[in-house]
């Protein structure tokens, strides 16, 4: 079983974030791997463990600090780490990012075929959950998204996905792109031995040229969307906090009535 997991560097959700020139500014020490990608790594490790053979690759695209995301995957037990680091990628939209990820995935796949690509269902830093679909389309592989259960066997993968109106069971031949929800599993904690090994492990550094991707086809210039304005939302004005000493419920009701909400 050969599985590649895409992981994303995300800023610590509790820390201050800012936008410059329409993109998110992050500092190396205030982030790591997108939390939901831990479920993706866990799914890959469990499948390889159950198969008794195989390898897990962790792949990220991003600036210098993004390497923290693949290091985290190594700490959890991934065998190989790939970091596509090229200035030309900055400012890519979801389709540009998917094109770069797909090129790196093909490079791995062409050398030794992969069975699955697993991703988290979304990035918790406020971006969209469109990437897994865009990646499946770009690779022209099977798309199994929002998996809250996942089984692999006989050259097929089968998932159950919970949509608001129905629980769907979907099956498709490998290779497939699978996105997983946090209902799928409980991610393990990194163990000390792996943490030490991850520090020294080699991370493959690839550029767009290594992938044969034309720099002009990705990045801010090729993005179909441009952030034209970004500003922090002002804190809520006129905040009122009362301590209940026997009248808290009445105070709450009075607030709702005054606001015309009750």
């Amino acid at each position: 079983m050969r599985i590649l997991v895409t992981v994303k560097f995300t800023p610590d959700l509790q820390s201050q974030r800012s936008f410059t020139d329409g993109t998110v500014t992050r500092t190396a020490d205030d982030g790591s791997m997108n939390e939901l990608d831990e479920n993706a790594v866990e799914a890959a490790l469990q499948l390889v463990e159950a198969a008794g053979e195989g390898e897990v690759y962790a792949l990220t695209v991003g600036g210098a600090d993004a390497v923290a995301a693949v290091r985290k995957a190594l700490q959890l037990g991934a065998n190989h780490a790939i970091h596509v680091n090229d200035d030309a990628v900055a400012g890519s939209d979801v389709f540009g990012t998917a094109a770069v990820l797909a090129a790196a995935i093909r490079k791995v796949h062409d050398e030794n075929p992969l069975d699955l690509v697993i991703t988290g269902m979304a990035a918790l830093d406020g971006l969209t959950s469109m990437l897994p679909t865009a990646l499946a389309a770009e690779l022209d592989w099977s798309q199994l998204t929002l998996a809250s259960s996942l089984e692999v066997g006989d050259g097929n993968a089968t998932i159950v996905r919970h949509l608001p109106d129905a629980h769907e069971t979907v099956t498709a031949p490998l290779p497939a792109v699978v996105s997983v929800t946090d209902e799928l599993n409980k991610p393990r904690y990194p163990n000390f031995k792996l943490i030490m090994a991850a520090r020294k492990a080699e991370v493959m550094q690839w550029s767009l040229a290594d992938l044969g991707v034309d720099a002009a086809s990705v990045g801010a210039g090729a993005s179909r969307t441009t952030v034209v304005d970004a500003s922090p939302r002002p804190p809520r004005a006129h905040q009122q906090i009362v301590t209940d000493t026997g009248n808290g419920g009445n105070a709450l009701a009075a607030f709702l009535i005054e606001k015309g909400l009750a």
């Binding site: 809520r236 006129h238 905040q239 009122q240 906090i241 009362v242 301590t243 209940d244 009248n247 808290g248 419920g249 009445n250 105070a251 709450l252 009701a253 607030f255 709702l256």
Partner: peptide
Amino acid sequence: CDFGVVGSLFDVLPQA
């Protein structure tokens, strides 16, 4: 929040 009550919901909700 715009309006907060520091207290137990079991006291505050019935009264509200």
